[in-house]
Design a protein around this nucleic acid. Structure first.
Lengths: 213, 213
DNA sequence: TAGATTGTTAATCGATTAACAATC
DNA sequence: TAGATTGTTAATCGATTAACAATC
């Protein structure tokens, strides 16, 4: 509703990180933090932290710092963490099952409501209380269970096909763990977790050539 | 050996992505590609692609484009993908086992040689042919098996402890899947895969406020 | 040769840092 | 009040885009 100036992608990524550190400090019963202290903890310049916070609001107290509960609330609101996002997993293989077994997402308001697969041997099984359902029932399940996010954990050769099914079923966001990029219409949002990109980046960093003085 | 001007982090990430697309084109028996075509496929401007390629060498052919096999080799070399990187997994829980079950890393020269855990029930088991070993044997295993990369898949409360053990054992790179950031000396390289950061970014993108016209 | 596309420089755009007045 | 730290503007730095001469 308010007129927001656009916030850059780099700032968004840092905001998600601030949020983690804020929760950490919260659990240690810290009540207030300065941009200097937070910057020291996170390896980010105090100046940049203030720029980031001011990009989404104005909630510091001059001469004191930032109240952690306000900070958490403001960043959480901005990132959309104030509401529940129901998720489903497409592909009940190793990775899909691992994600279903992890309770951390549920705890922060991102519960996994079902896994979908085409393998008849898997259908009907429960993983950590979450049922594996036949892919044929995807569309109605999404509608009836208020599903926002589809987690893609399928093999390369059927990634786009599964994406199209999700889009057709009205999904709003796709968390893509598969090895390929996907094409979606503009109103569907995609976040990729690409293991290969990540591993190859690590490889580069470890490269001797790079590490010359 | 050559004097390399530093290549920016954004360029590195894109290079890993080019590499994926090049392999894809390779498998379709394409032999040559122009920055224009590749840019169209990847949603990156041709100009930026040429800048990226020229940051690591000079291997296009004016009027024609880039030979895919040269391109693959040059980028691969630059990223350090020309040699085998032996890996181990710390923490043989769900995620650790899932990674061990995935053969894709092995195929590109990043084999997982062992999993480590402290749970006696797990020790001795094999996952996809990879043994789960007692953490006590970590140091000697790293030395004797030429291990480069440690994959961290442990719970928050022992992440830093495990990191210190890895560092002490002489690991060169850490692929960190745990929920917290870690501290390492400068000569140890870290690449984080933080699910929470990624999920929260997706949450932001799906946020209505952001999607106002 | 003519056409296409690179390699590279210059121009623009955006993100980070520095600095400091405002103020708690 | 004095000290501390924010909010914000200006300066710097870096990354992307545009343009075009070089050349295959």
């Amino acid at each position: 509703m308010e007129k927001d100036k656009t916030v850059s992608n780099t700032t968004i990524r840092r905001l998600t990180k601030y949020y983690r550190y804020i929760e950490e400090l919260n659990s240690k019963n810290v009540k207030i933090v300065s941009s200097y202290t937070l910057g020291k903890m996170m390896g980010i310049s105090p100046s940049l932290i203030r720029q980031d916070f001011n990009a989404i609001g104005e909630f510091g107290r001059q001469g004191h710092g930032y109240q952690l509960d306000t900070l958490k609330q403001e960043i959480g609101n901005f990132l959309g963490l104030n509401k529940v996002h129901n998720m489903i997993v497409i592909g009940a293989g190793n990775l899909g099952q691992t994600l279903a077994n992890y309770d951390g997402f549920d705890k922060v308001g991102f519960p996994i409501k079902a896994l979908f697969d085409i393998n008849p041997k898997l259908i009907g099984m429960k993983i950590n209380g979450v049922e594996i359902i036949d892919l044929d029932n995807l569309k109605s399940f999404i509608k009836n269970n208020n599903i926002d996010i589809g987690i893609l954990c399928v093999r390369k050769h059927c990634v786009q096909e599964m994406t199209d099914i999700l889009v057709d079923a009205g999904i709003k966001g796709i968390w893509n763990f598969s090895a390929t990029d996907i094409n979606v219409p503009d109103d569907v949002k995609v976040e990729n977790v690409n293991f290969s990109n990540s591993l190859f980046t690590l490889s580069y960093l470890m490269n001797d050539k790079y590490n010359l003085a």
